[in-house]
Every structure is written in C-alpha cells, then in structure tokens.
C-alpha cells in the first residue's frame, strides 16, 4: 500500500495516539527507580577501588543500609517484572505489544540499513562515479532510504530484550548471592564465584547500555532532545507515528479504511 493511497484526513498529524498506557508507564517508572537504586547500591561492590563510592557510603551503618536497599529494590523489581509478565499474558494490549517486540530478521536488516544509510559511504562512492554499473543494478546497496519501522524499531526491541535477559541473569545470580548457604549446599564454591562475577559484569553491561544507548536514544538524540515525553504522558502524535513508526501508521490507516468501507457497505 502506498502512502498516496492514505488520505491525510484519515490520520491527522495532530491526532494523539496512546503509545504507553498508564500500566506500562508505571512499569517503566518502577523499572527506573529500582534499576537506579540497584546500580547505586550495587556498583560500589564491583568498582570497590573507586573513591567516590567510599564517600557515598561513609556514614555509619551505611553498608548495612546499602544491603537492605539493594534487596528491597530487587524485590520491587521482581514484583514489577511479574506484573509485566502477567500483563503481557492476560491483557490483549500486553499480548499485542509482546508480539510486536519479538525480533524478526527484518530488525537485523533495519539495523544494517540504518547504519550504512547514516554513514552514506556507498552513496558517496556512487557520486564519485565508481562501481556505477553495480549500484545501478543493485540500488539497495546505496542505502538511499531509511527503513520503515513498525510499532517498535530494532533499537527498542533490543532494549526490551536486553532488559528481559539482564533481569533473568541478575535475578538468578542475585538469588544465590542472597542465599549463600543455599547456593553452597547446591554448588561448589567455584560455581558460586561465577555467580558473583556474572552479577557484577552483567550490572556493568546494563549500566553502560542504559547510560550510553538508552540515554542517547531517548534524551540526547537531537530529534528528541532534551527528552522524549512518551514515558510521562504516553502520547504520540499522528505526525510522529507517520515519521517514526510508518508501518504502524499504515496499519492503523488500513484498519480505519477497512472499517469505513464496512460502514459504507452496511449503509
């Protein structure tokens, strides 16, 4: 279906769509709060040589409180994840979102295409008149167009699956670190040592991913700077939908056209 087929009146640019409903926004905020708490109370144990963390835990009983906070945040985060899992199983919207978030081959292709489109190397070579025959025959390799994304682009899918994977690893390893005696009843010490290594390094990975990747995409990216407000109001406009998630835009448009066709038929 071409864009030309969609009459602009069908989805106005200023029409507001709900991208994150209240439950999703609360889940996201809970994730922010618990994740930040876990990082602040946990990272000092991994980067124990950094003086800044010693200053952070200088007061009396600080280390004890740190442990309590860490476990508390972990508990809330696990509850939040359970809520999200139930939400993704038992609500239609949750199921739909979850299916939309599943990775497809297209996502790898999209990432590849976005990268080379942004670099623009092949376009530059083509302009210089090199490999003209090849590029004329295979215009894909010029990466002239940006790929069209659905409800979730490859960046968002990657982040979601990253959180899922990270949570699984952190909860499992953290559970055994929390219950050392149980862990060592089941595993030899060297396996427990691996849990500790995994918990620490996965934390660094998660922290860096959030700080670099997520912060760029939702804050520092000039397109949304200083911040995309979706996580607060959950709203996305028809214009944003058309430019950022064109496939979803088309899907909605198609549904509306079908619906209007149906109503005109019944008339």
């Amino acid at each position: 279906m071409d864009e030309a087929v969609i009459p602009p009146s069908l989805i106005r640019d200023d029409e507001v769509f709900l991208r994150m409903n209240l439950a999703e926004r609360i889940q996201h905020i809970l994730l922010i709060v618990t994740f930040t708490t876990l990082i602040i109370t946990g990272l000092p144990l991994v980067l124990y040589e950094m003086k800044i963390f010693k200053a952070l835990f200088a007061f009396e009983k600080a280390f004890y409180i740190r442990g309590i906070l860490h476990r508390l945040a972990a508990g809330v985060m696990i509850a939040n994840i359970l809520w999200h899992v139930a939400y993704s199983i038992f609500t239609k919207r949750g199921r739909n979102n979850f299916m939309e978030l599943m990775p497809r081959f297209k996502d790898a292709k999209d990432a590849f295409q976005v990268f080379w489109h942004n670099i623009g190397l092949t376009g530059f070579i083509y302009k210089k008149g090199l490999f003209k025959a090849f590029f004329d025959k295979h215009p894909y390799w010029l990466f002239k167009e940006e790929p069209e994304f659905g409800r979730y682009n490859f960046i968002e899918k990657f982040e979601y699956l990253g959180v899922a994977w990270g949570s699984l690893v952190m909860i499992l390893s953290g559970f055994f670190m929390w219950n050392v005696e149980l862990s060592l009843r089941l595993f030899p010490l060297w396996v427990h040592d691996i849990f500790i290594i995994i918990h620490g390094y996965e934390a660094i990975l998660a922290f860096l991913t959030i700080i670099i990747w997520h912060m760029y995409n939702v804050h520092l990216n000039p397109e949304v700077f200083p911040m995309s407000k979706v996580w607060l109001n959950g709203k996305i406009t028809g214009h944003e939908l058309r430019t950022l998630h064109p496939l979803e835009y088309k899907k909605i448009a198609e549904e509306r056209m079908r619906a209007s066709a149906k109503t005109s038929e019944t008339k």
């Binding site: 005696e181 060592l184 009843r185 595993f187 030899p188 010490l189 060297w190 427990h192 040592d193």
Partner: peptide, 13 residues
C-alpha cells in the same frame, strides 16, 4: 558465619 556450611565451601579458592 554461614550456618550449615558444608564441604562445598572448600571446593574453590
């Protein structure tokens, strides 16, 4: 400190 510590405590460094 670790009540019920068993032989697994020795299986590692």
């Amino acid at each position: 400190c670790h009540p019920g510590a068993g032989v697994n405590f020795a299986k590692g460094k």
